[in-house]
């Protein structure tokens, strides 16, 4: 890892009934190889489980991979649960098959960035390192 670059704690998660984990695993591995600590949740997690893990592990950012079409429901829920737990400063980003029409609403809801087909792993690493900062953990 380059000196001066912050080592981030990141959670890469799969939510809902979507079994397509190829992308999530590639991103998790690419971020880990870039020097960050990555917790990959495995498949079929509920928004509650994602938020619980994020808080337990004191992560700085959450990346959700959703290819099931349920992105509108699941992103909103994760963001709402984070706010309820006072962890709204955890940066939420995501990727998957998300129609253009839905992008605006998800960004308005607080999804910091959405990576669509054609994104390279280098694009994701660059964005994460520019936009996710280590959080000051109280206590």
């Amino acid at each position: 890892m380059e000196s001066g670059k912050a080592r981030l704690r990141l959670l890469i998660g799969k939510v809902g009934l979507d079994g397509h984990d190829r992308g999530a695993k590639i991103i998790a591995r690419a971020l880990r190889d870039a020097g960050h600590e990555v917790i990959y949740t495995g498949l079929h997690k509920t928004p509650e489980q994602i938020v619980e893990t994020a808080i337990q592990e004191d992560v700085d950012g959450i990346g959700l991979s959703i290819l099931s079409g349920a992105h509108m429901t699941l992103f909103h829920k994760v963001i709402r649960l984070l706010a309820e737990r006072g962890a709204e400063d955890v940066v939420v980003f995501g990727g998957g098959i998300i129609p253009d029409d839905d992008l605006g609403e998800l960004r308005d809801a607080g999804v910091a960035e959405l990576f669509l087909p054609g994104t390279t792993t280098a694009d994701v690493i660059r964005w994460v390192e520019e936009h996710v900062r280590p959080r000051a953990i109280p206590g």
């Binding site: 190829r22 695993k25 590639i26 591995r29 690419a30 390279t120 792993t121 280098a122």
Partner: peptide, 12 residues
């Protein structure tokens, strides 16, 4: 996972 990662690197 290895094959998928390798494939993505080749695409990138």
């Amino acid at each position: 996972a290895d094959a998928a990662f390798h494939y993505q690197q080749q695409i990138d």
